[in-house]
Design a protein around this nucleic acid. Structure first.
Lengths: 117, 117
DNA sequence: TTGATAGTTAAGCATGTACTTAAGTATCAC
DNA sequence: GTGATACTTAAGTACATGCTTAACTATCAA
């Protein structure tokens, strides 16, 4: 397990680059070939391929080659994984916030704070 | 804008490291001091500090020092930013999937495919 | 079979990242 | 003041990342 990278590491790492996010954005609309994907970028094809490798390694994108054209598409599963992780942290954070609100609501009436209006 | 890093770059980059995710996880339960935060890790204090710098630069964590103790807490805003980005891509992706389903639903009855059951 | 198209591989290079150790600087408790 | 506590800064190192150019391999079309 020394060289193991957790799926979330790979997904967040992949999303940390604006070019790769743009590619995911493009692919979430519809599948595309490598050159279609490369077109908007001021970047060599090999560079685009390397971004694609990162996206595939992270599981955010799958691709298959037919003839000389490789068609890429989004794979939702790992995007969901990342979304779920974030949701869980946010839920915990808000839960804590609610507990604080409850605590304050319990304390305030007993204190000599002035009423609203 | 040459050296500018978009907020999402910083947030996803920050979340790409398991130690930093663990810190966010810890802090989403309650605020903590630097040494509390460091305790679970087999890592020097300066290393923890550097992770904290990354988290603060990304806006995921805020901190303030009182006396000699720095207290860190989660800042939800940028976590939400990342969550929203992911939700949007997923929504687009599913929308496309639905359009495909509609298309198939429209085509199937006209074809000579066999009925279900 | 020849040329154009679509992608791939390899090598190299400049920066960035994730640590480390060593040596600080402010509190705080007595 | 003195020592312990809680960070903080600086410097160095190993490896990862994001590109580049050059050269190559498979289609496909005529």
């Amino acid at each position: 397990m020394l060289n193991y990278q957790a799926p979330l590491d790979l997904v967040f790492q992949a999303l940390a680059d604006p070019a790769r996010r743009a590619m995911v954005e493009r692919l979430s609309r519809s599948p595309a070939s490598v050159s279609e994907l490369a077109r908007p970028f001021d970047m060599s094809l090999p560079a685009v391929m390397q971004h694609l490798d990162v996206l595939e390694a992270s599981g955010l994108v799958r691709s298959e080659k037919v003839g000389r054209v490789r068609t890429c598409r989004v794979d939702d599963a790992n995007l969901k994984l990342a979304g779920d992780w974030i949701s869980k942290r946010r839920a915990l954070w808000e839960q804590r916030f609610d507990r604080l609100a409850d605590y304050l609501a319990e304390q305030k009436p007993k204190s000599k704070r002035r009423r609203k209006s």
